[in-house]
Design a binder for these strands. Sequence first.
DNA 1: AATACTGTTCGTATTGAATGGACAATGGGA
DNA 2: TCCCATTGTCCATTCAATACGAACAGTATT
Lengths: 306, 306
Amino acid sequence: MNKLELLRTFVRVSELSSFTLAGESLGLPRSTVSEQVRALERLLGTRLFNRTTRRVQTTQDGALLYERSKDLLSGMDEIESLFSADDADLAGRLRIDLPTMMARRLIVPALPGFLERFPRLEVELSCTDRQVDLLREGFDCVMRIGALSDLDVVARPVGRLSMRNCASPAYLERHGVPRNLQDLAGHRLVHYVRNLGARSAGFEYEQEGELRFQAMAGVVTVNNAEAYSAACLAGLGLIQVPAVGVDEHLRNGELVSLLEPWQARAMPVSLLYARQRHVPRRVQAFMNWLAALLASQVDPVAAPSG
Amino acid sequence: MNKLELLRTFVRVSELSSFTLAGESLGLPRSTVSEQVRALERLLGTRLFNRTTRRVQTTQDGALLYERSKDLLSGMDEIESLFSADDADLAGRLRIDLPTMMARRLIVPALPGFLERFPRLEVELSCTDRQVDLLREGFDCVMRIGALSDLDVVARPVGRLSMRNCASPAYLERHGVPRNLQDLAGHRLVHYVRNLGARSAGFEYEQEGELRFQAMAGVVTVNNAEAYSAACLAGLGLIQVPAVGVDEHLRNGELVSLLEPWQARAMPVSLLYARQRHVPRRVQAFMNWLAALLASQVDPVAAPSG
DNA sequence: AATACTGTTCGTATTGAATGGACAATGGGA
DNA sequence: TCCCATTGTCCATTCAATACGAACAGTATT
């Protein structure tokens, strides 16, 4: 009895909710699928599907087994490709978490290329902006922008995001266009803080390699990247954001770049992963791809500031 | 081709360093073992053992595969016993880390009982006293005594260890026996600190439910539980330790308990485990057993101080 | 140099699983 | 309400993979 095959067909049946379709997709007759499921149920001593001839749905036990099986089969795939020279045959499931903005602007658009290169990989993508997040509730890899907290994980720096100072045309029409730091006195900054209740340090810029801040008034404080750019678009003040998050708005003319000699320091981007016994090769492959992708996208302007 | 069987025999061969013994222990003829290893090597495209007819030793690849295989087979065992009502058939490998003293005095002596109840479990026991340890370099469960750092793990409190104030007879003969807090002025304390360089707060005791400290002189500072009691045995001063660590010395008369109305606050004991997608049932079983063991061992004196 | 033991090879036999057709049950449509 | 298409189940047959054991070859010890 090949337990792994049993699990494979079980997983397929779970995903397709049909013995017939599962059989077709695996190149097996219905009868075999049926027998394998029956064998697995007998082995585990539980009913895995509630099935009539018309509907197949996993029981609670089945749902639990599905999750575990996915992991186990991933592990088996990992083992099988452990020593293969090219990693085109890496297989399994990747669970990653990205900042919303990065996912939408950069990674998701490029993801088809990744999946083409690794046709046997599956990606489960979660998006979060909370910083001190549940990192590693089973995630293989988490991307974080900015300073890192003291965490029991390995952080791999993969690049820096160059920053832009932006404002909406409507805002600039009303308050004028600032040309230097002194002009900021008459302007407003949308304050971004990681945790509400914290205080924003003001307008950030670099001078002689040193980080400096210019206190600025503001009427809105947000703790969310989406809300941050939305506030700027709404004319609530200046923002300082990674270029990648606003390049489209800048091209559209919905936002305007300004005070270009006084950019905030480029933001470090890191990939965090669990400090485990071993890092699966598929995770390494993904991180390498992500690092390359970022390297190609990060503005060269950012380099000297790092 | 049953890949799991292949891995099982591979693991057995690795552990026994012999095809023949592996075959015997698995109830298979040598030839089958040989063929299965060959099949696995062909599947993975690597040589797993350097073998002459006299010696079998794993290659580097073999060693790598061994670790992964153990995990995978553990996972399979876990799946197989997922839905069994009694957990006597739990199987797999447990990797745990305990404070040295607890391991030696409490857990290891009771471990045979645990392994008898779960005959298919294997335990890999690591002992450490460094507090902010690499918790979860693949550990299923880590026990910590005392305050917990801010960690990305789940902490399950399992009891409290009542404390004792101790000194050696030789020391007491020379410095006299302290009867109250005022007497401490003429005594020495062996200072225990978590990290060398830190300062000890002195003699700790509870009064009216509040934690208090009495500064005391000392000539030795240690950061290790073993060294701590050794220092006391050597007559270097008083110590305040969990009773479980010194009960034998107290019975022997090698140490003497004193200042019994002024005990340090009972130390909380916690089990830490990774906040993962799922906690394997074997880990739950182990933690339950450990919690029960501690509950039975913790001195009732400890209760009111918690 | 001989021997005892080890891993390997190979032809054979048997176990065990895949197959596909017949059957039964379900649920939608007429 | 009845019918039928479709789905999961069952079973006897077929097929193939694999376990087996004996013969072989190398090694290390005595």
